[in-house]
């Protein structure tokens, strides 16, 4: 819609919007995170929801214990191979549309514990991640910045339900829950989601 026309109408007391704008506005200002703290970053996540850094301003105050009621999973802390099947299972149990924030260096790539026989080198090997927050641990302000970035991302979401539903269903089918194998997880990564370019420097 023409911006000039919009502001003219606003002066006359008529507010215009589109369905997708208002739908996304409602969704992004009431994100309900899943109470999913794994390690040290969880403490900074709790500190973000406390009175000084106040996550409640963003509508994200209610941390749901159950995945069926949450739409944002903040993976905060190191994901180990023993825990990885549970993380994927929880992700699959969340209803869509859902978002994942990988908080901290451990969730992005294994972090300081990268040389670990039990450490999963990044949760994006198995589930699609929307926002990565670097830091060890990232400050509460960094988590707030990530929430705001996620809100901007949600504002640009499209409302084509049929197409999105088909995409989601395809994704869910391709999201096998890994099993703890003999030496490593089986499969060690989900090739459809995680396929980085090999890095060879001279």
């Amino acid at each position: 819609m023409d911006e000039g026309l919009k502001s003219e109408l606003q002066k006359a007391g008529i507010f215009t919007t589109t369905l997708s704008e208002i739908y996304n506005w409602g969704r992004r200002n009431s994100l309900w995170p899943l109470q999913f703290g794994l390690a040290c970053c969880a403490i900074e996540m709790i500190a973000t929801s406390m009175s000084r850094y106040d996550l409640a301003r963003f509508g994200a105050e209610v941390f749901r214990p159950s995945p069926r009621q949450a739409d944002l999973m903040i993976v905060s802390g190191t994901v180990t191979k023993k825990m990885a099947p549970q993380v994927v299972r929880l992700y699959k149990q969340m209803p869509s549309p859902k978002y994942v924030i990988a908080m901290g260096a451990c969730a992005i790539s294994g972090g300081p514990f990268k040389q670990g026989y039990n450490v999963l080198k990044g949760i994006d090997r198995f589930i699609p991640v929307d926002i990565h927050i670097p830091g060890c641990p990232p400050r509460p302000e960094a988590l707030l910045h990530a929430i705001m970035t996620l809100q901007r991302k949600i504002a640009g979401d499209s409302l084509h339900w049929d197409r999105r539903k088909a995409e989601e269903e395809e994704l869910m089918a391709d999201l096998p829950i890994p099993e703890c194998g003999v030496h490593d997880l089986q499969p060690p990564k989900n090739a459809k989601i995680w396929n980085p370019e090999p890095v060879i420097r001279g």
Binding site: L38, A39, G77, T78, T80, K82, M83, F113, G116, Y117, N118, V119
Partner: peptide
């Protein structure tokens, strides 16, 4: 049951 955060 332990070991869910075993980071060696």
């Amino acid at each position: 049951v332990f070991g869910y955060l075993h980071r060696n």
